[in-house]
Design a protein around this nucleic acid. Structure first.
Lengths: 208, 208
DNA sequence: AGTATTTTGAACTCATGAGTTCAACAGAGG
DNA sequence: CCTCTGTTGAACTCATGAGTTCAAAATACT
Protein backbone atom coordinates (compact mmCIF):
# COMPACT_ATOMS: atom_id res chain seq x y z
CA UNK A 1 0.00 0.00 0.00
CA UNK A 2 1.13 3.52 -0.77
CA UNK A 3 1.61 5.76 2.25
CA UNK A 4 3.09 9.19 2.67
CA UNK A 5 6.64 8.69 3.83
CA UNK A 6 9.14 11.23 5.04
CA UNK A 7 9.33 13.39 8.13
CA UNK A 8 5.84 14.81 8.02
CA UNK A 9 4.09 15.31 11.33
CA UNK A 10 3.60 11.69 12.22
CA UNK A 11 3.50 12.41 15.92
CA UNK A 12 0.02 13.90 15.91
CA UNK A 13 -1.24 11.13 13.67
CA UNK A 14 0.13 8.60 16.12
CA UNK A 15 -1.50 10.25 19.12
CA UNK A 16 -4.83 10.52 17.33
CA UNK A 17 -4.71 6.95 16.15
CA UNK A 18 -3.67 5.81 19.59
CA UNK A 19 -6.65 7.47 21.25
CA UNK A 20 -8.97 6.03 18.64
CA UNK A 21 -7.73 2.50 19.20
CA UNK A 22 -7.57 2.85 22.98
CA UNK A 23 -11.13 4.13 22.91
CA UNK A 24 -12.24 1.13 20.87
CA UNK A 25 -10.36 -1.58 22.71
CA UNK A 26 -9.25 -0.33 26.08
CA UNK A 27 -5.64 -0.05 27.11
CA UNK A 28 -4.74 -3.68 27.57
CA UNK A 29 -6.59 -4.97 24.51
CA UNK A 30 -5.16 -2.32 22.21
CA UNK A 31 -2.05 -3.53 20.45
CA UNK A 32 0.62 -1.20 19.21
CA UNK A 33 0.61 -2.70 15.74
CA UNK A 34 -3.04 -1.77 15.36
CA UNK A 35 -2.33 1.77 16.55
CA UNK A 36 0.41 2.01 13.95
CA UNK A 37 -2.00 0.86 11.26
CA UNK A 38 -4.64 3.34 12.43
CA UNK A 39 -2.10 6.15 12.23
CA UNK A 40 -0.81 4.99 8.85
CA UNK A 41 2.66 4.45 10.22
CA UNK A 42 5.07 1.59 10.89
CA UNK A 43 5.41 0.10 14.33
CA UNK A 44 9.03 1.17 14.93
CA UNK A 45 8.00 4.74 14.10
CA UNK A 46 5.60 4.65 17.00
CA UNK A 47 8.40 3.61 19.35
CA UNK A 48 10.61 6.21 17.74
CA UNK A 49 8.31 9.03 18.85
CA UNK A 50 6.94 7.65 22.11
CA UNK A 51 9.10 5.25 24.03
CA UNK A 52 6.47 3.07 25.67
CA UNK A 53 2.94 1.87 25.25
CA UNK A 54 2.36 3.54 28.62
CA UNK A 55 3.89 6.82 27.47
CA UNK A 56 1.83 6.63 24.34
CA UNK A 57 -1.28 6.21 26.45
CA UNK A 58 -0.47 9.11 28.74
CA UNK A 59 0.15 11.51 25.88
CA UNK A 60 -2.93 10.39 23.99
CA UNK A 61 -5.07 10.90 27.07
CA UNK A 62 -3.59 14.29 27.79
CA UNK A 63 -4.23 15.57 24.29
CA UNK A 64 -7.77 14.26 24.30
CA UNK A 65 -8.47 15.84 27.68
CA UNK A 66 -7.20 19.24 26.62
CA UNK A 67 -9.30 19.16 23.49
CA UNK A 68 -12.36 18.25 25.52
CA UNK A 69 -11.75 21.04 28.02
CA UNK A 70 -11.42 23.71 25.36
CA UNK A 71 -14.64 22.63 23.72
CA UNK A 72 -16.46 22.83 27.03
CA UNK A 73 -15.05 26.19 28.00
CA UNK A 74 -16.18 27.54 24.64
CA UNK A 75 -19.67 26.26 25.36
CA UNK A 76 -19.86 28.50 28.43
CA UNK A 77 -19.46 31.65 26.41
CA UNK A 78 -23.12 32.71 26.35
CA UNK A 79 -22.96 33.08 30.13
CA UNK A 80 -20.52 35.96 29.74
CA UNK A 81 -23.14 38.16 28.11
CA UNK A 82 -26.48 36.65 29.06
CA UNK A 83 -29.50 38.14 27.35
CA UNK A 84 -32.56 39.31 29.24
CA UNK A 85 -33.82 35.73 29.54
CA UNK A 86 -31.38 34.10 31.93
CA UNK A 87 -33.29 30.84 31.98
CA UNK A 88 -33.00 30.51 28.22
CA UNK A 89 -29.28 31.22 28.35
CA UNK A 90 -28.71 28.62 31.04
CA UNK A 91 -30.70 26.07 29.07
CA UNK A 92 -28.69 26.87 25.98
CA UNK A 93 -25.40 26.40 27.81
CA UNK A 94 -26.66 23.27 29.52
CA UNK A 95 -27.68 21.80 26.23
CA UNK A 96 -24.32 22.53 24.67
CA UNK A 97 -22.55 20.89 27.59
CA UNK A 98 -24.74 17.85 27.31
CA UNK A 99 -23.98 17.59 23.62
CA UNK A 100 -20.28 17.62 24.33
CA UNK A 101 -20.75 15.18 27.18
CA UNK A 102 -22.41 12.64 24.89
CA UNK A 103 -19.72 12.95 22.25
CA UNK A 104 -18.04 9.66 21.42
CA UNK A 105 -14.54 10.82 22.27
CA UNK A 106 -15.76 12.33 25.54
CA UNK A 107 -17.41 9.11 26.58
CA UNK A 108 -14.33 7.16 25.62
CA UNK A 109 -12.15 9.54 27.59
CA UNK A 110 -14.24 9.08 30.72
CA UNK A 111 -14.29 5.32 30.25
CA UNK A 112 -10.54 5.11 29.83
CA UNK A 113 -9.98 7.36 32.80
CA UNK A 114 -12.15 5.20 35.00
CA UNK A 115 -10.70 1.96 33.80
CA UNK A 116 -6.99 2.71 33.96
CA UNK A 117 -6.99 4.88 37.05
CA UNK A 118 -5.55 2.01 39.06
CA UNK A 119 -2.72 1.31 36.63
CA UNK A 120 -2.03 4.98 35.88
CA UNK A 121 -2.84 7.05 38.97
CA UNK A 122 -0.85 9.94 37.55
CA UNK A 123 -3.21 10.28 34.60
CA UNK A 124 -5.88 11.53 36.96
CA UNK A 125 -3.79 14.58 37.69
CA UNK A 126 -3.07 15.20 34.04
CA UNK A 127 -6.68 14.84 33.00
CA UNK A 128 -8.72 16.05 35.95
CA UNK A 129 -6.75 19.24 36.30
CA UNK A 130 -7.53 20.08 32.70
CA UNK A 131 -10.93 18.45 32.99
CA UNK A 132 -14.07 18.67 35.11
CA UNK A 133 -12.36 20.68 37.83
CA UNK A 134 -11.37 23.57 35.61
CA UNK A 135 -14.75 23.48 33.97
CA UNK A 136 -16.63 23.67 37.24
CA UNK A 137 -14.34 26.51 38.27
CA UNK A 138 -15.23 28.41 35.13
CA UNK A 139 -18.93 27.87 35.72
CA UNK A 140 -18.52 29.07 39.28
CA UNK A 141 -16.88 32.24 38.00
CA UNK A 142 -19.83 32.95 35.76
CA UNK A 143 -22.34 32.29 38.50
CA UNK A 144 -20.48 34.61 40.84
CA UNK A 145 -20.68 37.40 38.27
CA UNK A 146 -24.38 36.82 37.79
CA UNK A 147 -24.93 36.88 41.54
CA UNK A 148 -23.10 40.20 41.84
CA UNK A 149 -25.29 41.53 39.05
CA UNK A 150 -28.32 40.56 41.09
CA UNK A 151 -29.54 38.00 38.60
CA UNK A 152 -28.86 34.95 40.78
CA UNK A 153 -28.65 34.14 44.47
CA UNK A 154 -25.66 31.85 44.48
CA UNK A 155 -24.05 32.83 47.75
CA UNK A 156 -21.65 29.92 47.36
CA UNK A 157 -20.83 29.87 43.64
CA UNK A 158 -18.65 26.79 43.89
CA UNK A 159 -21.43 24.71 45.32
CA UNK A 160 -23.91 26.15 42.89
CA UNK A 161 -21.67 25.28 39.97
CA UNK A 162 -21.11 21.81 41.34
CA UNK A 163 -24.83 21.21 41.56
CA UNK A 164 -25.52 22.74 38.18
CA UNK A 165 -23.11 20.31 36.59
CA UNK A 166 -24.50 17.43 38.63
CA UNK A 167 -28.06 18.18 37.55
CA UNK A 168 -26.93 18.11 33.95
CA UNK A 169 -24.62 15.13 33.78
CA UNK A 170 -26.15 12.89 36.44
CA UNK A 171 -29.40 12.20 34.61
CA UNK A 172 -27.46 11.90 31.40
CA UNK A 173 -25.21 9.10 32.63
CA UNK A 174 -28.18 7.12 33.84
CA UNK A 175 -30.21 7.54 30.67
CA UNK A 176 -27.40 6.97 28.21
CA UNK A 177 -26.50 3.79 30.08
CA UNK A 178 -22.93 4.96 30.36
CA UNK A 179 -22.63 6.19 26.84
CA UNK A 180 -24.00 3.00 25.37
CA UNK A 181 -27.34 4.36 24.20
CA UNK A 182 -27.63 7.27 21.82
CA UNK A 183 -29.71 10.16 23.10
CA UNK A 184 -31.49 12.41 20.66
CA UNK A 185 -31.40 16.16 20.81
CA UNK A 186 -34.95 16.44 22.08
CA UNK A 187 -34.10 14.40 25.16
CA UNK A 188 -30.99 16.48 25.75
CA UNK A 189 -33.10 19.61 25.66
CA UNK A 190 -35.51 18.10 28.11
CA UNK A 191 -32.74 17.18 30.53
CA UNK A 192 -31.27 20.67 30.28
CA UNK A 193 -34.68 22.24 30.86
CA UNK A 194 -35.31 20.11 33.93
CA UNK A 195 -31.84 20.81 35.30
CA UNK A 196 -32.16 24.55 34.87
CA UNK A 197 -35.63 24.43 36.39
CA UNK A 198 -34.40 22.86 39.59
CA UNK A 199 -31.30 25.00 39.60
CA UNK A 200 -33.26 28.25 39.37
CA UNK A 201 -35.75 27.11 41.99
CA UNK A 202 -32.85 27.08 44.38
CA UNK A 203 -30.54 29.81 43.09
CA UNK A 204 -32.78 31.96 40.95
CA UNK A 205 -33.67 35.58 41.77
CA UNK A 206 -36.15 36.10 44.59
CA UNK A 207 -39.10 36.87 42.33
CA UNK A 208 -39.14 33.42 40.74
CA UNK B 1 0.62 -24.71 53.14
CA UNK B 2 -2.39 -26.12 54.93
CA UNK B 3 -5.73 -25.27 53.38
CA UNK B 4 -9.24 -26.51 53.94
CA UNK B 5 -9.87 -29.09 51.29
CA UNK B 6 -13.02 -30.89 50.28
CA UNK B 7 -16.24 -29.72 48.73
CA UNK B 8 -16.92 -26.86 51.05
CA UNK B 9 -18.36 -23.79 49.45
CA UNK B 10 -15.43 -22.90 47.26
CA UNK B 11 -17.62 -21.28 44.66
CA UNK B 12 -18.47 -18.27 46.78
CA UNK B 13 -14.87 -17.91 47.85
CA UNK B 14 -13.83 -17.93 44.21
CA UNK B 15 -16.36 -15.28 43.24
CA UNK B 16 -15.36 -13.07 46.17
CA UNK B 17 -11.68 -13.47 45.46
CA UNK B 18 -12.27 -12.84 41.79
CA UNK B 19 -14.03 -9.57 42.45
CA UNK B 20 -11.31 -8.51 44.85
CA UNK B 21 -8.58 -9.14 42.31
CA UNK B 22 -10.52 -7.68 39.41
CA UNK B 23 -11.13 -4.59 41.54
CA UNK B 24 -7.43 -4.27 42.25
CA UNK B 25 -6.05 -5.00 38.80
CA UNK B 26 -8.79 -4.62 36.25
CA UNK B 27 -9.98 -7.44 34.03
CA UNK B 28 -7.05 -7.80 31.69
CA UNK B 29 -4.34 -7.40 34.31
CA UNK B 30 -5.93 -9.85 36.72
CA UNK B 31 -4.53 -13.33 36.30
CA UNK B 32 -6.46 -16.43 37.21
CA UNK B 33 -3.64 -17.82 39.31
CA UNK B 34 -3.81 -14.77 41.53
CA UNK B 35 -7.56 -15.11 41.86
CA UNK B 36 -7.05 -18.70 42.89
CA UNK B 37 -4.54 -17.63 45.53
CA UNK B 38 -6.88 -14.91 46.80
CA UNK B 39 -9.66 -17.46 47.13
CA UNK B 40 -7.37 -20.01 48.77
CA UNK B 41 -7.95 -22.49 46.00
CA UNK B 42 -6.03 -24.19 43.21
CA UNK B 43 -6.21 -22.91 39.67
CA UNK B 44 -7.93 -25.96 38.16
CA UNK B 45 -10.62 -25.64 40.83
CA UNK B 46 -11.47 -22.23 39.48
CA UNK B 47 -11.92 -23.65 36.00
CA UNK B 48 -13.86 -26.50 37.51
CA UNK B 49 -16.52 -24.14 38.85
CA UNK B 50 -16.48 -21.39 36.21
CA UNK B 51 -15.48 -22.35 32.72
CA UNK B 52 -13.85 -19.13 31.54
CA UNK B 53 -12.10 -16.06 32.79
CA UNK B 54 -14.95 -14.19 31.11
CA UNK B 55 -17.61 -16.28 32.84
CA UNK B 56 -15.81 -15.77 36.10
CA UNK B 57 -15.88 -12.03 35.53
CA UNK B 58 -19.56 -11.95 34.67
CA UNK B 59 -20.58 -13.91 37.72
CA UNK B 60 -18.36 -11.91 40.02
CA UNK B 61 -19.81 -8.65 38.70
CA UNK B 62 -23.36 -9.91 39.01
CA UNK B 63 -22.91 -10.96 42.62
CA UNK B 64 -21.25 -7.69 43.52
CA UNK B 65 -24.00 -5.69 41.84
CA UNK B 66 -26.75 -7.53 43.66
CA UNK B 67 -25.05 -7.00 46.98
CA UNK B 68 -24.66 -3.31 46.27
CA UNK B 69 -28.30 -2.95 45.27
CA UNK B 70 -29.58 -4.61 48.43
CA UNK B 71 -27.47 -2.37 50.61
CA UNK B 72 -28.80 0.69 48.85
CA UNK B 73 -32.42 -0.36 49.00
CA UNK B 74 -32.00 -0.93 52.71
CA UNK B 75 -30.67 2.59 53.05
CA UNK B 76 -33.95 3.97 51.71
CA UNK B 77 -35.96 2.49 54.52
CA UNK B 78 -36.35 5.67 56.60
CA UNK B 79 -38.32 7.18 53.72
CA UNK B 80 -41.08 4.63 54.27
CA UNK B 81 -41.97 6.11 57.64
CA UNK B 82 -40.53 9.61 57.63
CA UNK B 83 -40.69 11.45 60.93
CA UNK B 84 -42.12 14.94 61.23
CA UNK B 85 -38.86 16.44 59.95
CA UNK B 86 -38.77 15.44 56.31
CA UNK B 87 -35.61 17.39 55.65
CA UNK B 88 -33.76 15.49 58.33
CA UNK B 89 -34.98 12.17 56.99
CA UNK B 90 -33.89 13.03 53.47
CA UNK B 91 -30.49 14.10 54.72
CA UNK B 92 -30.17 10.87 56.67
CA UNK B 93 -31.01 8.78 53.62
CA UNK B 94 -28.76 10.88 51.42
CA UNK B 95 -25.89 10.43 53.78
CA UNK B 96 -26.37 6.68 53.93
CA UNK B 97 -26.42 6.51 50.14
CA UNK B 98 -23.25 8.55 49.93
CA UNK B 99 -21.57 6.26 52.41
CA UNK B 100 -22.42 3.26 50.28
CA UNK B 101 -21.40 5.11 47.16
CA UNK B 102 -17.92 5.76 48.52
CA UNK B 103 -17.46 2.17 49.60
CA UNK B 104 -14.41 0.54 48.06
CA UNK B 105 -16.32 -2.31 46.45
CA UNK B 106 -18.89 0.14 45.06
CA UNK B 107 -16.22 2.28 43.49
CA UNK B 108 -14.52 -0.77 42.07
CA UNK B 109 -17.80 -2.01 40.65
CA UNK B 110 -18.42 1.27 38.85
CA UNK B 111 -14.86 1.36 37.58
CA UNK B 112 -15.03 -2.17 36.24
CA UNK B 113 -18.39 -1.51 34.67
CA UNK B 114 -17.07 1.54 32.86
CA UNK B 115 -13.88 -0.09 31.76
CA UNK B 116 -15.14 -3.40 30.42
CA UNK B 117 -18.38 -2.17 28.94
CA UNK B 118 -16.87 -2.40 25.46
CA UNK B 119 -15.62 -5.94 25.88
CA UNK B 120 -18.68 -7.14 27.82
CA UNK B 121 -21.71 -5.19 26.63
CA UNK B 122 -23.99 -7.79 28.20
CA UNK B 123 -22.72 -6.98 31.68
CA UNK B 124 -24.44 -3.63 31.48
CA UNK B 125 -27.80 -5.39 31.38
CA UNK B 126 -26.88 -7.68 34.25
CA UNK B 127 -25.62 -4.87 36.43
CA UNK B 128 -27.69 -1.85 35.50
CA UNK B 129 -30.96 -3.71 35.83
CA UNK B 130 -30.05 -4.60 39.38
CA UNK B 131 -28.23 -1.32 39.86
CA UNK B 132 -28.87 2.40 39.60
CA UNK B 133 -32.07 1.94 37.63
CA UNK B 134 -33.85 -0.12 40.24
CA UNK B 135 -32.58 2.17 42.94
CA UNK B 136 -33.87 5.30 41.24
CA UNK B 137 -37.18 3.51 40.71
CA UNK B 138 -37.41 2.79 44.42
CA UNK B 139 -36.63 6.40 45.28
CA UNK B 140 -39.28 7.55 42.82
CA UNK B 141 -41.80 5.30 44.55
CA UNK B 142 -41.05 6.90 47.89
CA UNK B 143 -41.24 10.39 46.50
CA UNK B 144 -44.59 9.61 44.89
CA UNK B 145 -45.96 8.48 48.23
CA UNK B 146 -44.70 11.61 49.92
CA UNK B 147 -46.26 13.75 47.23
CA UNK B 148 -49.63 12.04 47.70
CA UNK B 149 -49.31 12.66 51.42
CA UNK B 150 -48.87 16.36 50.66
CA UNK B 151 -45.34 16.51 52.00
CA UNK B 152 -43.66 17.07 48.65
CA UNK B 153 -44.52 18.58 45.28
CA UNK B 154 -42.91 16.04 42.98
CA UNK B 155 -45.40 15.99 40.16
CA UNK B 156 -43.01 13.87 38.16
CA UNK B 157 -41.52 11.47 40.72
CA UNK B 158 -39.18 9.84 38.23
CA UNK B 159 -37.52 13.09 37.34
CA UNK B 160 -37.42 14.15 40.98
CA UNK B 161 -35.73 10.90 41.93
CA UNK B 162 -33.29 11.24 39.07
CA UNK B 163 -32.30 14.71 40.21
CA UNK B 164 -32.14 13.73 43.86
CA UNK B 165 -29.64 11.02 43.01
CA UNK B 166 -27.73 13.34 40.70
CA UNK B 167 -27.43 16.00 43.40
CA UNK B 168 -25.99 13.41 45.74
CA UNK B 169 -23.61 11.47 43.57
CA UNK B 170 -22.52 14.16 41.12
CA UNK B 171 -20.64 16.32 43.62
CA UNK B 172 -19.28 13.17 45.21
CA UNK B 173 -17.64 11.91 42.03
CA UNK B 174 -15.98 15.23 41.45
CA UNK B 175 -14.71 15.62 45.00
CA UNK B 176 -13.55 12.05 45.49
CA UNK B 177 -11.64 12.27 42.23
CA UNK B 178 -13.30 9.12 40.99
CA UNK B 179 -12.96 7.22 44.19
CA UNK B 180 -9.28 8.01 44.52
CA UNK B 181 -9.50 10.39 47.47
CA UNK B 182 -11.03 9.40 50.76
CA UNK B 183 -13.87 11.64 51.92
CA UNK B 184 -14.60 11.98 55.61
CA UNK B 185 -18.02 11.74 57.15
CA UNK B 186 -18.29 15.46 57.75
CA UNK B 187 -17.92 16.18 54.07
CA UNK B 188 -20.47 13.52 53.21
CA UNK B 189 -22.93 15.17 55.58
CA UNK B 190 -22.25 18.51 53.97
CA UNK B 191 -22.88 17.16 50.48
CA UNK B 192 -26.09 15.50 51.61
CA UNK B 193 -27.25 18.71 53.30
CA UNK B 194 -26.56 20.76 50.19
CA UNK B 195 -28.27 18.22 47.95
CA UNK B 196 -31.38 18.08 50.09
CA UNK B 197 -31.43 21.86 50.30
CA UNK B 198 -31.55 22.27 46.56
CA UNK B 199 -33.94 19.36 46.19
CA UNK B 200 -36.44 20.80 48.65
CA UNK B 201 -36.18 24.26 47.14
CA UNK B 202 -37.58 22.72 43.99
CA UNK B 203 -39.80 19.92 45.23
CA UNK B 204 -40.50 20.83 48.83
CA UNK B 205 -43.93 21.78 50.15
CA UNK B 206 -45.26 25.18 49.18
CA UNK B 207 -44.56 26.81 52.54
CA UNK B 208 -40.84 26.40 52.26
C1' DA C 1 -13.30 -49.32 55.73
C1' DG C 2 -14.24 -48.42 50.89
C1' DT C 3 -15.76 -45.98 46.94
C1' DA C 4 -16.84 -41.82 44.34
C1' DT C 5 -16.02 -37.10 43.85
C1' DT C 6 -13.44 -33.10 44.19
C1' DT C 7 -9.21 -30.64 45.03
C1' DT C 8 -4.43 -29.98 44.43
C1' DG C 9 0.14 -28.82 42.57
C1' DA C 10 3.07 -28.89 39.02
C1' DA C 11 4.28 -29.09 34.58
C1' DC C 12 2.72 -28.45 30.13
C1' DT C 13 0.88 -26.21 25.41
C1' DC C 14 -0.10 -22.43 22.96
C1' DA C 15 -1.32 -17.82 21.58
C1' DT C 16 -0.57 -13.05 21.98
C1' DG C 17 1.73 -9.00 22.07
C1' DA C 18 5.59 -5.65 23.73
C1' DG C 19 9.72 -4.07 22.28
C1' DT C 20 14.05 -4.67 19.26
C1' DT C 21 16.99 -5.31 15.34
C1' DC C 22 18.37 -4.45 10.75
C1' DA C 23 18.86 -3.82 6.04
C1' DA C 24 16.54 -1.31 2.47
C1' DC C 25 14.53 3.11 1.42
C1' DA C 26 12.52 7.90 0.92
C1' DG C 27 13.06 12.70 1.27
C1' DA C 28 15.63 17.27 2.64
C1' DG C 29 19.75 19.94 2.13
C1' DG C 30 24.03 20.82 0.37
C1' DC D 1 24.64 13.39 -6.94
C1' DC D 2 25.38 12.31 -2.15
C1' DT D 3 24.65 12.29 2.68
C1' DC D 4 21.96 12.43 6.78
C1' DT D 5 17.93 11.68 9.09
C1' DG D 6 13.70 9.46 9.75
C1' DT D 7 10.60 5.67 7.96
C1' DT D 8 9.50 1.03 6.67
C1' DG D 9 8.52 -3.96 6.81
C1' DA D 10 9.71 -8.17 8.32
C1' DA D 11 11.60 -11.20 11.30
C1' DC D 12 13.08 -11.81 15.77
C1' DT D 13 13.29 -12.41 21.26
C1' DC D 14 11.08 -12.81 25.28
C1' DA D 15 7.68 -12.59 28.90
C1' DT D 16 3.12 -13.38 30.30
C1' DG D 17 -0.87 -15.68 31.06
C1' DA D 18 -5.10 -18.65 29.61
C1' DG D 19 -6.50 -23.09 29.74
C1' DT D 20 -5.26 -28.28 30.11
C1' DT D 21 -3.48 -32.60 31.78
C1' DC D 22 -2.60 -35.97 35.29
C1' DA D 23 -1.37 -38.54 39.10
C1' DA D 24 -1.66 -38.05 44.00
C1' DA D 25 -4.25 -36.71 47.93
C1' DA D 26 -8.11 -35.15 50.62
C1' DT D 27 -12.85 -35.31 51.55
C1' DA D 28 -17.80 -36.94 51.43
C1' DC D 29 -20.99 -40.70 51.50
C1' DT D 30 -22.36 -45.28 52.70
Amino acid sequence: MVRSRGRIDKRQAILDGAFTVFARQGYAQACVQEIANEAGVAKPTVYNHLTDKATLFRHAMQTAAQTALHERLAALEPLAEPGPDLRATLEEVGHRLLRLHTDDRSCALRRLLYSEITQFPDILDIVTESGPHRLTQAVADRLARLTLAGRLRASDPDRAAEQFMALLTGPLEARSRMGTRRIDDAELHEIARAAVGTFLASFGPADG
